[in-house]
Design a protein around this nucleic acid. Structure first.
Lengths: 206, 206
DNA sequence: CCTCCGCTTCTACAGGTGTAGAAATCGATA
DNA sequence: TATCGATTTCTACACCTGTAGAAGCGGAGG
């Protein structure tokens, strides 16, 4: 995928993170994962903190890139979309989310891990720009739908969507949630998202 | 709070977890936090895995106790409540959530950490029963409101609420979300929850 | 009084981890 | 070709962590 050393290492680090958690993220583990000489990671990221920061930066970078090409369907075409057919919009978003849970599962997991890490390392918080892009798009969408307080509603909306993602990843609700990557998963996500969209676009959350 | 050794240690472990993350959770750190002789934790929980399991068990126990006394307002009084005044119900729930973010912040953080940990340790998943109680209550509430598929809707609802909690803890949306423990925070949560309630009680998410 | 038994504290040790710097390798330039 | 600089690899080492077991302690029962 990425060819330069830095990208290779940070990508490997993201894999390690998803597979073994924060505790498993060590210089040597990344070396092993990347199949590079032992000590490589340590040479490129002299401290562990530097490694984590690089990971966070890469995550933000990747997510940003994704959200710009593969942006929220609502933003893709016309300016005001949702009013037309919330169901279709929701289906589009659901497809994206489902991809984040199947193909992109690793990255999504790593992102949550890092968000939690940012709790005790505030400097990370500023880097995690993903949320901002997503939030921005959501806010714009809601604004174009004429919602009363789009900032607040957008913020709530992305928080809820993140909750759906988290729930499926951590499997707290493994009882009801279907396996990601399947049509059932997309359907389930779509109904949830559609409900959310209808709720948050009902001008003025009252 | 708790007086027997086990509870003291697991409570200390929860504090450590919230303060330093999974990486910081070590036998010795718990000893220090609990101000007990070095080696105590190691004596009570011979392996790290045992320690984590104990923490998860305690979290589930505490949350379960909480949710039984301090249950969702919707369940407290009459059988079918929400139809009456969703705003009031939402305000009640919001108050509880806000407490989880201020006074109970430590526990909430630890819970998310553990949920993420359960990703690579499936046996933990069965212990984290909190979600089940909350989910059960939410499902019951939606059922009593005559929602079409209360299981699914309840699952989505608690996932979304967890998302709101996570968002405020991790501060991804620190821009918009007010400081927990304040009236502003409760208000903000209340509007979000009310929106969610209205959405998920609109019989049949369509 | 001594003895036993459970709880608590202490010590030991083998491995893992963060970090720094030395050694080696390689390509380009003069 | 010989030299230089950067990149890459290797090594060293102090410290931390998990885990096991020994030592110490205090109270109940004989």
């Amino acid at each position: 995928m990425a060819t330069d050393r830095f990208a290779v290492l940070t990508d490997a680090a993201i894999d390690v993170l998803a597979e073994h958690g924060m505790r498993g993220l060590t210089h040597r583990a990344v070396d092993a994962r990347a199949e590079l000489a032992l000590g490589t990671t340590s040479a490129y990221f002299r401290t562990r903190k530097a490694l984590i920061e690089a990971v966070v930066r890469r995550l933000a970078e990747l997510d940003r890139a994704d959200l710009e090409t593969d942006r929220l369907p609502a933003e893709a075409g016309a300016p005001a979309v949702d009013l037309g057919d919330p169901g279709a919009v929701a289906a589009g978003i659901a497809a994206v989310l489902d991809r984040w849970l199947s193909a992109g599962r690793t990255r999504t997991l790593a992102r949550f891990l890092c968000l939690l890490e940012a709790t005790h390392h505030p400097e990370l918080r500023t880097i995690l720009a993903y949320g901002d892009v997503f939030r921005l798009q959501a806010t714009a969408m809601l604004a174009s739908a004429g919602v009363e307080n789009p900032e607040q509603a957008g913020s709530h909306l992305v928080a809820c969507i993140d909750g759906l993602l988290f729930d499926r990843l951590a499997g707290a609700g493994s009882r009801t949630a279907p396996q990601p990557g399947t049509a059932a998963s997309r359907d389930d996500l779509a109904t949830a998202v559609e409900t959310l969209l209808r709720a948050f676009t009902a001008t003025g959350s009252r």
